[in-house]
Design a protein around this nucleic acid. Structure first.
Lengths: 226, 226, 226, 226
DNA sequence: TATGAATGAGCGTTCATTCAT
DNA sequence: TATGAATGAACGCTCATTCAT
């Protein structure tokens, strides 16, 4: 499983090998229990080289988080096109998110499970990624309130003047709930196996967009053809 | 912050003090990074006494998880009355859940963040608690499909025969999403401060029951008077 | 295996129970690895009581050694009658020795294996016992030189004037060799099982009295009828 | 007494230094009471280096036993020439044995006193060495019975048909007695000081070959000229 | 006579980190 | 660019021993 012991590689390549190894080890053991020995061995290099390139265990962990958070963020960003409707953008983002986390389960484990477990240096890194995600969702909710129009004719009998009454403060909570649901589902899909990213995204889209009340009442949301 | 150094207490009392200290330390540092020295010091006793009563770090962590998981489960169970409607039961459960996690933030951090990070001995403990929760939610969804009747007259134009079409498999995903959202919200409410359990519960109830689409369309769910 | 937990026993009895337990534990684990907890538990008393009666681990070990060394010495002394011939006295002593060690294997293990392993407090205790044994054997050798007379007519051709030429210094070595052989044989007989004390004594008597050279030449020594 | 603190030595050299230190400490204190700190300090290195090279206390002890048992066995084997007579081979073996144990008293203390005190991992190592020794002696006894011929004409009056009547079972006891005597004598010679290996070997040869009875009757065995 | 409660000191082991080459 | 040699500091755990009753 360890990288083939090739000598005299350019620094950039060696660094990526180390980060690859670090992601695996950190995911399997967690930050504290992971040892620099294990990482160096899996990377196929000596320990001093790891320190030469990455300085310390903290820095190494930070580098891992930055790289993986960046990759995940980029994948989602690339999938969302601003000219589409709000629900379509939400769908595209979720699909990209679940696809990426399914393809990089170790990375997701580190970001979701381990990075938040430890003091300031790392929490900040992850918080930044999360903040972007929450901003993205918040923006979607606002956009949805603009785009979408007609309330359900029945409703609570209050007519269309009610819409867009989402208090600023509540939006944060809603976004947090959505992101939390997505995060949990990503870990669940990875560990349960046998669930595709599309299915996971559709499930979340249904409960998030239509709501439990709507679902049991027969409403549902359908993903675009492909 | 450490407990007052009182001497010669009966075993049962000392044990609870130790568990209290352990919850704090485990929450702040995580299982691996927490040290038995720190726990003993915070509990106001010497390390050997911790070992005499709790046997090992693993056993101590297990005891913490069992105690806290039991307390949380009990709080939720006590709040839910089976003769009420599905949405009312969901509300009651959520409110009890967020109230308890707000009152015991360290316990929730341990259960949510740290306990799942480590191998079989602990994961099983937490998995049991989570399984009960998921079963509770699943049951609610099914009950909702029975209780509630009339679909939104407009809807997607498909009439009332559509309801109850939730595939068995999808229910697992929905429950997971809900539980995940609740878990994340609990941590968020704790860290953000300034958000009451009622508000958190209402937020989740809205997004979960009414859905984002419904919310922007003006529908919303209102908590019972008291 | 532990003594039945009877309360309020006279001190002398309790002390013997503790020594009994200590002999077993010390024999099984050795002095350093044996724990006062184990000994107290096997004795069926609390640890402070052991300290109340025996003061410390060192004192406890000393007490064990003194008791067991005394018992062994007494058994041998009782078996040897000064009015008998030298070889008969040697035989009686050996038989008593092997009989006692076979009946108290744990005691012998402590005396032979563990007591000599540790610094001055204990070595002295055992050395005293050993000194008595060596003196006893030395005396026998001297007595034999007086009692017994005729040299083997062949010999190295040197006639009977040669006898009693055992240098003082050599006698110590001879006694040491005999005692060492006996000690090893005792442990061997205990661990091998299935060898009676009589057989063991006869074996040693043969090799010690007749010598290997004599044995292969057809000489041998026969134990008294019973 | 500790090795001079020389830095940056090749691994093989450091390992031998560690084993040297371990032999001394184990001999002085016994396995359980010896501490890795003491060994590391005497070896002139830090404790982690000892673990890096020798893995654990058990492994270190095993390595010590293997090295010292091998050296002793080799020394004896090199001294014994199969074409010589039985008594000469016995003499050569004993002389080599006492010479080696006199030169390496700590090693002998570990092998004789401490290694047999502890459970399977170590006992096996020593048992192998001892088994070889016993086999060697057994073979000598058998060879002696072949080589040597004429019984002492007097004897116990039983004629020459008596020889070679050593029961298989008894040979094991005789070998054990001889080996035990030798082992004890080695420790005794070391602790008493002032006794040469030649003297010790001669003493044992006399009592073992000629027998106490023979000795007091004027017979004796003389070592070869040089 | 007897014990539940408690601890200072130490041990085997591991880890992040550095030095010298 | 790359590594073999080496360590200070800490951690989980245990033990002989005492205090208060």
């Amino acid at each position: 499983m360890g990288a083939v012991k090739t000598k005299r590689m350019p620094r950039a390549v060696r660094e990526q090998q180390m980060l690859d190894a670090a992601v695996r080890i950190f995911a399997q053991r967690g930050y504290t229990a992971a040892s620099m020995d294990d990482i160096a061995e899996l990377a196929g290099v000596s320990k001093p080289l790891v320190y030469l390139y990455l300085n310390s265990k903290e820095d190494l962990f930070s580098a891992v988080i930055r790289r993986e958070a960046g990759a995940l963020t980029a994948a989602v960003r690339a999938a969302v096109h601003p000219e589409r409707t709000a629900d379509r953008r939400l769908w595209d983002g979720l699909l990209a998110f679940f696809t990426h986390t399914a393809r990089h389960p170790d990375a997701w484990t580190v970001l979701h499970l381990h990075a938040r477990t430890h003091g300031e240096p790392f929490a900040a890194e992850v918080a930044a990624m999360r903040a972007e995600t929450v901003a993205f969702v918040t923006q979607l909710v606002a956009a949805a309130a603009r785009d979408e129009g007609a309330p359900c004719s029945g409703g609570t009998g209050s007519g269309d003047t009610r819409r867009v009454r989402l208090a600023e403060q509540e939006v944060a909570g809603i976004a947090e709930a959505l992101v939390g649901a997505a995060e949990s589902l990503a870990a669940w899909a990875n560990s349960a196996g046998r669930v595709t990213a599309r299915q996971t995204a559709a499930t979340l889209m249904n409960v998030a967009w239509t709501g439990l009340g709507g679902l049991v009442a027969g409403r549902s949301w359908s993903p675009p053809a492909e």
